[in-house]
């Protein structure tokens, strides 16, 4: 792979990195909503149960982050197989 092709691959990878990073950061900092008036509805109980939207959000964020990593790794594996790393 020549230098220009390498730079093109790097640009694509960097874009991908930043997209995944941006999604993660948006989700992560949305947790702050729990402490604002906008997040009042999150703090309430879900129906008659003691589980609150805030608790559910915590668990959902952890699972989502793991899934994002998995997608990122699978995308990387696909591009590696196509010879991008050579």
């Amino acid at each position: 792979m020549d230098n220009a092709a390498k730079l093109q691959v790097i640009r694509a990878r960097t874009r991908r990195r930043f997209v995944f990073t941006l999604i993660t950061l948006l989700l992560y900092f949305s947790f702050i909503l729990n402490w604002t008036a906008l997040g009042d509805s999150l703090a309430g109980r879900l129906g008659m149960s003691h589980v609150t939207g805030s608790l559910l959000m915590f668990a959902a964020l952890i699972v989502t982050f793991i899934l994002l990593e998995l997608v990122f790794l699978l995308m990387n594996r696909a591009t590696t197989r196509s010879g991008e790393d050579s």
Binding site: T21, Y28, F31, F58, F65, E69
Partner: peptide, 19 residues
């Protein structure tokens, strides 16, 4: 619940480490 702020903070760095 407030104690979980530190748990989320400790966890979320790992996706970014990978990305």
């Amino acid at each position: 619940f407030d104690g979980l702020v530190l748990a989320l903070g400790a966890f979320a760095a790992w996706p970014l480490l990978l990305f």
